[in-house]
């Protein structure tokens, strides 16, 4: 999977994303979302290109990118498992589910399994507070987690 992208290829693809967002008011977040959707993370070289195009300093773009939890500096695993850590999920045993997931995957928060299959992320509320504890697997929601259900989720993604 580790295909090195040439600076030129990144440049072309980032350029197209910036072009598509050119007419927006406040285009930086849509651009960063676009870049992350394209590459799975925001490559360092993209920051300079975006900065040049938006007439910002590279530091400003870096500052924005690193402010938000969503944007990654490195690719995630093939699957991203987000577990809700917020209060409603806590009240239904979310902490125990999280400990179980960490133990099974052998990673802590933000960690990726050595085989590159899963990245475990905390999330603070998926709005599934009345069917807690909740998780999100590659953008798909899962609720009413218990030991069996979290095991099944992990089984699906860990290979």
């Amino acid at each position: 999977m580790a295909v090195e992208l040439s600076a030129r290829e990144i440049g072309d693809r980032v350029g197209a994303i910036v072009d598509a967002c050119a007419s927006l008011e406040g285009p930086l977040l849509p651009i960063l979302h676009g870049v992350q959707a394209e590459f799975g993370f925001v490559p360092q070289t993209a920051l300079r290109l975006i900065a040049d195009r938006l007439n910002l300093s590279r530091a400003e773009v870096h500052g924005v990118m690193t402010f938000y939890h969503d944007f990654r500096e490195e690719p995630a695993g093939r699957h991203v498992l987000k577990l809700c850590r917020a209060e409603a999920c806590q009240s239904m045993g979310g902490d125990e589910i999280a400990e179980r997931a960490k133990a099974q995957l052998g990673v802590d928060w933000h960690g990726t399994t050595p085989n590159g299959a899963v990245t475990l992320e905390p999330v603070f509320c998926l709005g599934l507070c009345s069917c807690a504890p909740a998780a999100m697997v590659d953008g798909r929601v899962v609720g009413r987690l218990n030991d069996d259900r979290i095991d099944a989720v992990i089984e699906q993604v860990r290979a």
């Binding site: 930086l28 849509p30 960063l32 938000y68 939890h69």
Partner: peptide
Amino acid sequence: EIRSGAGAYVCGEETSLLNSLEGKRGV
């Protein structure tokens, strides 16, 4: 237009939301 946030809780505060919408840090 629909704009997507980027995982910062504080952007629910109206002025930080506006900064975020402008493409700045959500301060």
